[in-house]
Nucleic acid binder design. Structure first.
Lengths: 344, 344
DNA sequence: ACTTAGCACTCCTGTCATATGAGTGCTAAG
DNA sequence: CTTAGCACTCATATGACAGGAGTGCTAAGT
């Protein structure tokens, strides 16, 4: 029993109808709405075969069929037609990036908000992570007699700065010396590579400035920690409640239980393929509480370096074609903008 | 018909029982659980009076009573006994601030998380706002030949820094000149006070550095915008779903519809009284969709300057005594810590 | 005058039986 | 191979009904 053209048409009809209505799809409704030129009885036979193949399933005997996880997978891989955004939608997205104030923070926030309005799904956005970025330079800049600004720059163009209080009796000279030592030891390394050993050798070399060094190390640690703990934004939690599958409180609780856990969202996004839009369906997400969801995601980059990703999380029944179109367009435009002229 | 002692006891019993169980409270259950020394019939008479006074109400004829908004208000103002945290809870809170890495961001995040675990309510935290802070200094520090770091410091100790690309042919001298002009014009002003007029006079004075100035103004604008748009954090959305009132999807939708709107949360917190813990009950919040909620909030400060506030949003039926104790303790400790030795 | 036992009354909630209708699977004829 | 026809299944809606919680009122007790 192969999957002939007609079976494909039937499967396609089932998937698309179910995506549109959230209801099980009956043979009769397919015969009516999709002109396949056969009667409902024939479609019933095909459906019976599709069920045996595991592509669709029946919630109960006297209900229509809904696509199974593999049904969606088959649809996404082989049946789905590309969708593209309307010019108006593209305009809306462009307007995110057209604004004058181009602080990265701002762009990210507006990106989330816009995508949120464009879909009824949950928008996940992972923030540029320092973790994989190599350090380019550390600067300790004098601000006032007793305060300095420590600036940490990475190869990807990321800049983090923190104010530190200086111990009394600190000369500009010794500050410069510290700066030099730090740069010599840390340059080119990623944060996780700055090991205890390296820290110790720095300590040895700057034994006299122990006190200040402690503060600086505290900051490095803090920056590290911040960038390990943060970096996921989320929008559209309200949106997703519009979907009929969340008219039941248990589903909402289940959803809420994991969207507040940043580490989980991060791990979901981390599986994004860096070269193309990734679609994870149901158990493919590999996280039990999300087994009834799907994620469409893609990475974005600054000057060729992947810095984060954007994903849409929705019910398995999500409109994949549209989600893919949106994600594709937004990551493209975002990468382009970030690579051009962003203020950090 | 005055509110005699016994009526107060009955009201107190009703409020506390309803807070504990979320169920309407019957005369009989009061007679049983609270030793008032009278029968349920007597309590019924008192309840009838309390209802006429508008302090309690009846969901339907054959149900018990629940406190009305004014009932809660009366309870909070006159009947409620102060609650205090256990030493263990205080320890948990202290541990937020005990950690070495004291980046403000980090402290804020951990504060939210901790309070989230301590209660079943939604935690709102407003981030230090630049809006009311006077500018102390603007610095433009050379980083690389074609990049500078612009640092904006406020009187409250807040520091914001951004990298800007320099137009070619920029000398350290002209940078310094710009810095001086900016400081002369902006120092001591709050962001909203930097008006078009002032901006124009700066433009006039620095006509030659038009290009760079445009960028700098872009940044000032961006910082302004960021700090108008951001600054609310939220935690515990999942928590609040544990409350029995949210076993109904409509209530959840209602809640979600406004907790995603930062401007609304901000306006809710903005009503916080700067000198004491504020309790807003139901319609007192003055925002229709939140008419069934209550908010307990207080401000926190850095060195005496109010910089933000923390609030707990829960059903009207929330445990006010506990909420107040938590908010009081956390804002106190937070202010203290932030005023001491925080890295920005 | 206040308290309280007793009882009628209200109204919510859960259960059960029944009817309805959508949808399938199968059979037999085209 | 297709399809009309029909029996069968099962979710859902409806209404009747009982049970129970709680009140309000009355009348008797203190």
């Amino acid at each position: 029993m192969g999957i002939n053209i007609r079976k494909q048409h039937v499967l396609e009809a089932i998937v698309e109808s179910h995506i549109a209505t959230a209801e099980p799809v009956s043979s009769r409704s397919i015969a009516r709405k999709y002109r396949l030129g056969v009667s409902s009885a024939t479609i019933r036979n095909e459906m019976s075969d599709l069920e045996e193949l595991g592509l669709i399933e029946q919630p109960h005997t006297s209900a229509g069929r809904i696509p199974s996880q593999s049904g969606y997978r088959y649809y996404v891989d082989r049946l789905m037609k590309n969708s593209s955004l309307t010019t108006q939608e593209k305009k809306i997205i462009s307007s995110i990036f057209a604004q004058k104030a181009k602080a990265i923070n701002n762009i990210i926030q507006r990106t989330i908000k816009t995508v949120t309005h464009l879909t009824d799904y949950l928008v996940l956005l992972s923030w540029p992570q320092l973790e994989n970025a190599a350090l380019k330079k550390i600067k300790v800049l004098p601000l006032t007699p007793d305060q300095s600004l420590m600036v940490i720059m990475t190869e990807t163009g990321w800049v983090e700065s923190k104010v530190i209080d200086l111990p009394s009796g600190m000369t500009p000279d010794s500050l410069e010396r510290i700066e030099n030592v730090l740069n010599t030891h840390f340059q080119g390394l990623t944060f996780p590579q700055i090991s205890r050993t390296i820290l110790h050798s720095v300590y040895d070399e700057l034994l006299k400035q122990r006190k200040l060094l402690d503060r600086i190390m505290g900051i490095v640690e803090a920056v590290l920690q911040e960038n390990a703990d943060e970096g996921i934004f989320l929008g559209g939690a309200y949106n997703i409640l519009k979907q009929p599958e969340y008219s039941d409180i248990a589903a909402v609780r289940n959803l809420m239980s994991f969207i507040e856990e940043e580490s989980i969202l991060r791990s979901i996004l981390q599986k994004t393929n860096p070269t193309e839009v990734t679609v994870k369906i149901g158990k493919e997400i590999n996280y039990d509480p999300a087994a009834k969801y799907s994620v469409v995601s893609a990475v974005y980059s600054i000057g060729g370096n992947v810095v984060g990703s954007i994903g849409l999380l929705g019910p398995m029944r999500m409109d994949y074609a549209r989600a893919i179109a949106i994600i594709e367009y937004i990551t493209g435009t975002l990468s382009e903008t970030l690579s051009k002229d962003v203020l950090y």
